[in-house]
Simulated scan of single mutants.
Amino acid sequence: MTGTLFLIPNTLGLNQDQAPDLLASIIPETVQSISAQMGFLIAENAKTTRAYLKFLGQRHPLRLPIQAIQISELNINTPAHALEGLLAPLKQGHDAGLISEAGVPAVADPGANLVRLAHQHGIQVRPLVGPSSLLLALMGSGLNGQSFAFHGYLPTDAALRAKRIKELEERSRKEKQTQLMIETPYRNTAMLEALANHCQGNSLICVATDLTLHSESIQTMTVTEWKKRVAANQLPDFHKKPTVFLFLAQ
């Protein structure tokens, strides 16, 4: 009998002064308890996962010492042929957890292929409730939550990015669909400027930064209003901070 692959959510970031009892406002207690029982984890980065386990262990005693928990890494550099090996503990009957670096696994996260492979092997997959920056941003944006699409990262080349933005705006206009994307945090300013320069003046842009943190900021306004802010250097406080960008053509 195979084990269960638990999809374990992580926080979207922790403030340095955040007390462990505030974790419950982000990760449900039951999810914390299940996470603390894992002896096998699959994570993007073993070091940061151990740091999270240490924080989690202040509220829920871990079943094993952190150094005894087997943490295998799965990231964008993991070759496809290595996925079978990551499922080995599950095939042997052990439960294991797939944990994201931030937010929920397999959404804007490299874990989706492993989840698909688990299904192919008849391994039970159990997603656990936790924060998703994409859904939180959509909820707080005021944009269309009935129809939306996430596009990950747009091209870094300025010309290709401009072309892609115009394509997505046309799609948004035709389908009344909110478009979501993310960017490497140090490129946030360039992304906002690109959206403001290449979208129509009455389109709505939302910038959602540091969701669930004390520094959380969600701002929605028209392209025309954003252009004024950019020209006046009144940018959101989003430099090197995780940010979700959304827009909706009018």
Rank of each mutant, 00 (worst) to 15 (best):
N77M: 13
L204Y: 02
G122Y: 02
E29T: 13
T30H: 15
T4A: 05
M191W: 01
T78C: 01
F150G: 04
I165T: 00
N113K: 15
E193N: 13
G152Y: 08
I66S: 08
D109F: 00
G142P: 05
I99V: 13
K228H: 13
T209V: 07
V107R: 05
A108L: 09
Q58K: 11
T212L: 11
A162I: 06
V230S: 01
S35K: 00
S215E: 15
M1F: 02
T156C: 11
Q219D: 07
D237N: 14
I66H: 08
G39I: 00
L246D: 09
K228W: 11
I69N: 04
V223P: 00
Q32I: 02
C206G: 03
V244I: 15
G97V: 01
G142E: 00
D95G: 06
H94G: 07
S35H: 11
L12G: 09
V104I: 15
L98K: 05
G142M: 03
S147Q: 11
D237Y: 11
E175M: 14
E175W: 12
G13V: 08
G145N: 11
S147N: 13
A82H: 13
V107F: 06
S215K: 14
A68R: 14
L154K: 06
V31I: 12
L213R: 07
P242V: 02
H198D: 12
S215G: 11
G130R: 00
P236I: 09
T156G: 12
D237V: 12
G85K: 06
T212D: 11
R63S: 14
R187H: 08
A96T: 02
G13K: 10
G111L: 03
Q146P: 08
Q70G: 09
H151Q: 12
A82D: 15
Q219F: 08
T4E: 04
I99E: 04
G85S: 10
G3H: 00
K240P: 10
L5R: 04
L86Y: 00
L204S: 11
Q120F: 10
F150A: 05
P127F: 03
R187G: 00
H121L: 01
E225F: 09
T243Y: 00
R50V: 03
Q67E: 15
L62M: 05
I205P: 05
Q219C: 10
P236Y: 08
E183A: 00
I165F: 01
L41N: 02
L114A: 02
Y52P: 01
G122L: 04
L62D: 04
R164K: 12
A19K: 15
T212K: 10
T30D: 15
L74H: 03
E101D: 14
L195E: 10
Q58H: 05
A231S: 13
N113Q: 15
V125M: 06
G142I: 03
F40I: 08
A68D: 15
L235T: 12
N75T: 01
L53R: 06
S132F: 03
M38K: 09
I71D: 08
G93N: 02
G122I: 01
A68F: 10
T220V: 01
G201H: 12
K91T: 14
P89S: 10
T156I: 13
A112C: 07
Q32H: 10
A208T: 14
L128C: 06
L248C: 10
Q124S: 14
N45A: 02
P79W: 11
V115P: 03
F150Q: 08
Y52E: 08
G142S: 08
Y153N: 03
V125N: 07
T11G: 10
V207F: 04
E193Y: 09
